[in-house]
Computed example of a mutant assay.
Amino acid sequence: MPSTLPALLLSGGAVIDLDGSLLIQLAIFFVAFELLRRLVFRPMIALFDAREAAIDGAKREARSLETEAEEKLKAFETEMKKVRAEAAADRDSIRQDAQRLERELLAKARVEADGMLGDATAKMQSDAAAIRADMKKTVPALAGQIAEKLLGRKAA
């Protein structure tokens, strides 16, 4: 009797015997299937579903946080524009105040300098007049002394 599978198929004999052991095997299969379904498959499917729900929830939360962050960034940028505009206005105001103060100080310094220059000019003119008057008194005596030295005698 051939023992190989093709030989058995060609011989016309039955490969599977249908007897009472088939019912026992089917019962064992269904009991094992039900036990595995209750103890392994359902908890695993529940675990997968829970993990999927957690992932979906985390994705939704990440999207909402991203949207919130974008809104906060836009609000921050808007506020920064506003603050920059205020700072520029303050800077311009301070610059204008500084320029006005500079003009005032320069005008005051010019007035003081003009006053000091006028005082100095008046003093120099009065000193020059006093020196000229003194020279008019001393020039004839000095001229006489120079003439005596040059001539070697007293001038008449």
Rank of each mutant, 00 (worst) to 15 (best):
E34P: 01
V40K: 05
R63I: 00
L151F: 10
D56W: 00
K59C: 00
F33T: 04
I131R: 10
E61W: 00
S21N: 10
V83Y: 03
R91H: 09
L5G: 03
E104N: 06
G12D: 04
L106Q: 13
E148L: 11
R95H: 13
E104K: 07
Q25L: 14
A155H: 07
G115C: 04
L73Q: 12
L105T: 12
T4F: 09
A75P: 01
A107C: 06
A46H: 13
A7M: 09
R63C: 00
R38T: 08
M116I: 13
A130P: 02
A50P: 01
G13K: 15
I55Y: 01
T78H: 05
L142C: 11
F48V: 12
V40D: 05
R42W: 07
R60I: 01
M1H: 14
D90L: 13
A128L: 15
E61D: 02
K81E: 11
L9Y: 05
L151P: 03
L105D: 07
S126E: 15
I45V: 15
K81W: 02
A54I: 00
S11K: 04
L18E: 06
K72Q: 14
V31Q: 09
D134I: 02
A89C: 01
A128P: 01
K123D: 14
R42C: 04
I28P: 00
K149Q: 14
L150N: 08
R63D: 09
L36Q: 10
I131Y: 09
I45N: 11
E102S: 06
G144V: 06
G115Y: 03
K154E: 09
A141M: 09
K81H: 02
I16C: 10
V111A: 15
K137A: 11
A58T: 00
K123H: 11
I146L: 14
L117H: 14
K81G: 01
L47P: 02
E52M: 05
K72V: 07
L9V: 06
E52S: 10
L8G: 01
L35W: 07
A58H: 00
V40T: 08
R42N: 11
A46E: 15
L73A: 14
V40G: 03
G57Y: 00
M1Y: 12
V111G: 02
G12P: 01
K59V: 05
E61K: 00
K123R: 15
K136H: 07
K108V: 05
A7C: 08
E68L: 09
K108P: 03
R51K: 08
A130Y: 03
E34R: 08
A147S: 10
D114M: 11
A7V: 05
E86A: 09
G115L: 03
S21Y: 01
K74M: 08
G12Q: 01
A120M: 15
A107D: 13
L65D: 04
L117I: 13
L106F: 09
E77N: 12
V31H: 04
D49I: 01
D49R: 08
E52Y: 05
I45W: 10
E86W: 04
L26G: 06
S126W: 03
D119I: 14
L106T: 06
L65K: 08
L5T: 05
A109G: 02
T67W: 06
R110K: 11
E66F: 01
S93M: 11
A88P: 00
S3N: 14
K149A: 15
